[in-house]
Design a protein around this nucleic acid. Sequence first.
DNA 1: CGGCGTTTTGAGAGAGCTCAACATCGGTGG
DNA 2: CCACCGATGTTGAGCTCTCTCAAAACGCCG
Lengths: 201, 201
Amino acid sequence: MSTLDWLPSSILQLSTQRDLKSGEVLFRQGDAVSAIFEVEEGRIRLLRYTIDDHVAVLHTAASGESFAEAALFSDTYHCDAVASVVTRVRAYPKRELLETLLGDPKLAKKYMSVLAHEMQTLRTRLEQRNLRTARDRVLQHLLVSADAGSGIIPLSGTLMDLAGEIGLTHEALYRTLAALESERIIARTKDKIVLLRGKSL
Amino acid sequence: MSTLDWLPSSILQLSTQRDLKSGEVLFRQGDAVSAIFEVEEGRIRLLRYTIDDHVAVLHTAASGESFAEAALFSDTYHCDAVASVVTRVRAYPKRELLETLLGDPKLAKKYMSVLAHEMQTLRTRLEQRNLRTARDRVLQHLLVSADAGSGIIPLSGTLMDLAGEIGLTHEALYRTLAALESERIIARTKDKIVLLRGKSL
DNA sequence: CGGCGTTTTGAGAGAGCTCAACATCGGTGG
DNA sequence: CCACCGATGTTGAGCTCTCTCAAAACGCCG
């Protein structure tokens, strides 16, 4: 369900929940790091105040995503974390988590693996953004996400969410999917997309 | 100089160089993982063959970047690695590297820290791509990259490289920088850009 | 049944991409 | 020392594509 649920129960039991209203601040740049977090429900934005008090959004963490991992290795947070909607987060205490991770090589390896895979995913998504046209981006996403055997891409959220993930407006995504369907390159059902084979894209 | 140069000399000494011609393959999907790599000079593309033998570029690693970190935790490579120009890579043997990292909690912590920071950077770059206009993207990059005190952004590579990093054509970047300069929002020299303060962007 | 979010299609406009020409700079070899 | 050459830097003009704004059908849930 989440990126940290493989942690030993000793740590899971030390984690706590916190509810935030829309606009409420979870931590501020410069605060001492007490915990790292995971979004259970809602959305957290990481903001940095730059020269002349301009605000830059560094990251938006959605449900199921952990964030502020780098804070595990820092004394203070380097950005603000603000809920942009009603949000529930789970907090994992820094000191205990770090001790647990470093005290057990198996866990250390697991965490490195999780981080490395997340990096891989991010790099792939970034590379995807280099594709200019909606068609290329959608196809790239479908090709990479498709089950190798069946060509099925299950739809976890809504198409609007998917549009955001791949950096398109929902209108552009709908239009592109409609075009691909009419060209018999994909088939669609309510909860999945199927890549049809034997097509020269 | 690189992302892995903090490793103990015992590992650095076990690393080897390999030169590749343009188009030469470093490893293939399914190969047993023997090492992870760092680009010393050139460019490596990570490719995956998807349904119907379509090629998807998962990542492009440039000089100074390490790649295939996730392979440390896998038995086989999950994509192909191909040099897209004449390239020199440094290979770090998997087994020894993993043993060293897991055998010393300090090193484990360091590596986790490196991975977490890389994630942070990637997330920020991804968020940056959500900005539509060239102006917003350039300003976001400058604001985040600027030294907090002086507002100076040193230019490490060429402007063409920078254009690629932030997802613009070099023409669009040149035009945007010229506009920002004529508006007295930035000042430029050969090797740096300075953000001028007191401007409402 | 009513309301809200998702899905869908339409039309227009803006912004970056593409192609093109040219300037600039550093290195190379005659 | 200078001509040449490739890569970087710069500017111009047209075109294509997505974004934006709008409207409407659809489906789910209370």
